[in-house]
Computed example of a mutant assay.
Amino acid sequence: MDPQRLKDNFALVAAHGIDVAEYFYADLFERNPSYRSLFPASMARQQQVLLEALAQIVSLVDDPERLVPYVQGLGRSHAGFGVTPQHYPEVGASLVATLKYFSGDAWTAELEKDWVEAYGVVADVMIKAADEK
């Protein structure tokens, strides 16, 4: 996994602003309609929270001493909202689909591998933290 490649790609994607979050949730709910009930009726705040969390995770991708506690906190809070380990693969699929969409021609097989690996690490930490709750 190349942290700088992730940071550079996320900068490209994040330039699309709230459209990124809207696309992500549209993809997630299309793939998994039952997940919609885990979220508030108005998604505006949730979309902003998603973008902020992604930006924080990416900014810390090469600083595990700060990243791990942040991600553990996310895992514990998500468990409180009813998120289970079974949700994580579907969220990851929608995240990768979103990143790919907004990357356009900049998307490569190496970049996809990096994102899948990074998401896998984050998901594992979140799941373990939720289990320790």
Rank of each mutant, 00 (worst) to 15 (best):
D2N: 15
D2H: 08
P3Q: 04
Q4E: 15
Q4A: 12
R5L: 14
R5A: 15
L6Q: 04
F10I: 11
F10L: 14
A11L: 12
A11I: 00
L12P: 00
L12N: 07
V13K: 05
V13Y: 02
A14E: 08
A14R: 10
A15Y: 01
G17N: 10
I18G: 01
E22R: 14
E22V: 14
Y23F: 15
Y23E: 11
Y23G: 11
F24I: 14
F24G: 11
F24V: 13
A26C: 09
D27S: 15
L28A: 11
L28V: 11
E30N: 13
E30K: 15
R31M: 11
R31D: 12
P33I: 01
P33C: 09
Y35K: 09
R36Q: 14
S37H: 05
S37M: 13
L38E: 03
F39S: 12
P40Y: 03
P40I: 00
A41P: 06
S42H: 09
M43E: 11
M43T: 09
A44N: 10
A44Y: 06
A44L: 08
R45H: 10
Q46D: 05
Q46L: 12
Q46Y: 08
Q46E: 14
Q48W: 02
V49C: 02
V49N: 12
V49D: 07
L50Q: 02
L50S: 04
L50A: 06
L50K: 04
L51Q: 06
L51Y: 06
L54V: 15
A55D: 14
A55P: 01
I57N: 00
V61F: 00
V61I: 15
P64N: 03
P64L: 06
E65M: 10
R66Y: 06
L67H: 01
L67P: 01
V68S: 00
P69M: 08
V71N: 00
V71D: 01
Q72M: 14
G73P: 04
L74T: 01
L74W: 02
G75C: 05
R76I: 12
S77I: 02
H78Q: 09
A79R: 13
G80W: 00
F81D: 01
F81V: 01
G82D: 02
T84N: 05
P85E: 07
P85R: 09
P85V: 06
Q86N: 10
Y88V: 06
P89E: 07
E90A: 13
E90V: 01
V91Y: 01
G92L: 11
G92P: 07
S94G: 12
L95M: 15
L95R: 11
V96I: 15
V96Y: 09
A97W: 12
T98F: 04
L99D: 04
K100Y: 07
Y101E: 15
F102T: 04
F102L: 12
G104H: 03
G104E: 03
D105V: 07
T108F: 12
T108W: 13
A109Y: 13
E110W: 04
K113F: 05
K113L: 08
K113R: 13
K113G: 10
K113W: 02
W115F: 10
W115Q: 06
W115I: 05
W115L: 09
V116R: 15
E117P: 00
E117V: 08
A118T: 09
G120L: 07
G120M: 07
V121R: 03
V122H: 00
A123V: 12
M126C: 04
I127D: 05
K128E: 12
A130W: 02
D131A: 14
D131H: 08
E132P: 00
K133C: 11
